[in-house]
Amino acid sequence: MIALLLRDLTLATRAGGGFGLGLAFFLILCTLVPFGVGPQGATLALIAPGILWVGALLACLLSLDRIFALDFEDGSLDLLATAPIPLEGVVATKALAHWITTGLPLVVAAPMFGLLLQLPSGAVPWLMVSMLIGTPALSMLGAFGAALTVGLRRGGLLMSLLVLPLYIPTLIFGAEVIRRGTEGGSLATPLAFLAGITAATLALIPFAAAAALRVNLR
């Protein structure tokens, strides 16, 4: 599984791997929003947590179809399915690789994007915490959506239709953590829910995604 993780990471950083595209997309989004709502700092600060989280959702969504589609086309997935690694492990490893190449850079770069959107500096740690806890769930749920649609030629749009509703709870609790962190409200509930969703997703979704992959491989 480590070999698979390393291969996916290497592929992502080679030519055509798409590493960093998610970050660039995030940057463009944070540039466009002030054009849409106006440059007033107070307005931007108000909507920043939501924009940052919605941006993370979309940036994550953009690269989802790469999780399985390329390996499906060149036959790697057939070989991985006959390998000694359980398919659930393949799913979890590939989701982890997706998170390291899209989710983790977002977490690290989020404070900079927060600056662009006038996020109060007190909220920045909470922004990073909520994204660090929440984004793994996005990658894992995305892997499930990618597994469902891997056999379809134009599955991209359908996949976003299937995956985005699954992101709603993470979005709600993630943005709430930042909001409450800024305003000094009680953080225990949203943090617990956010972590709970991520933990449950990491534990259970690999089975559903592997089942969907098996259906698409037969």
Partner: peptide
């Protein structure tokens, strides 16, 4: 997730 969303939305 529909059930989870229901509680998230209440919150």
């Amino acid at each position: 997730f529909a059930l989870l969303s229901r509680y998230a939305v209440l919150f």
